[in-house]
Amino acid sequence: MSVIPLTPLDLSIAASLVLVLALLSLHLRLRLFRPMVVAAVRTTAQLLLVGIVLKAVFENVHPAWLGLISIVMLGVAAREVGRRQKLRMKGGWGFGVGAASMFLSSFSITALALTVIVQVEPWYRPQYAIPLLGMLLGNTMNGIALGLDRLSQSAWEQREIVESRLILGQTWSQAIDDIRRDSIRSGLIPIVNAMSIAGLVSLPGMMTGQILGGSPPMEAVKYQILIMFLIASGTGFGTIFAVWTSSRRLFDERQRLRIEDRFQRG
């Protein structure tokens, strides 16, 4: 059993639904007409582009292609982490910390999954590597963005408290401890919630895809469990690393809080 191919007409019917919605929003003056149309066009264009790229990569299996695509994905994700911060680190630090923590967590976990768990032959087979990495990066990105945003916002709001603690002789690490713990928690809570509700409200996207593609449900379920665990650990390690590194960056070598000159409104 294989997937029933979709014709351009099928997609046009779905697109017309979005168009009707956009027109309705114009009528209701939601000021969403343009953003919605632009977003719908972007979805189509971006996914078609990805399809072309994936098709090409699947036909030319080579680690270099995989590497190139991974780096582009990582770069876009790191930029997105920065874009989501209301208060972000100056001078490329935001991008650097985001990229480093996603690289450390997502890439190593994907490598582990490919070589040890699923044992794909060869390990760089793009049908496995790219979707796995994509799911990990996407989720890790969310966790890191949430954690870092919370960290910089709280440190800003509580800067006088942090300074008081430093003045009383606490180390930078003690002075930021509560804030750092809250930030890591806020990065991790979504994935913990997702794990506890998985399958009860909605079927996870990947599993849905596999089932639509004709896989036996139990196989799809096992893959989904694997993915959930990988995502949880990737998000966790990535967020902890990113929040730790950034919290150090809040202070200078004499352990003074420097949020006002090292961070800027985004």
């Binding site: 008081s164 430093l166 003045i167 009383l168 002789g169 606490q170 180390t171 004499r254 352990q255 003074r256």
Partner: peptide, 13 residues
Amino acid sequence: PAPLWRRRVGFLP
């Protein structure tokens, strides 16, 4: 070390 200094030179804001 800065924390040690700040414990020895106590500042009351």
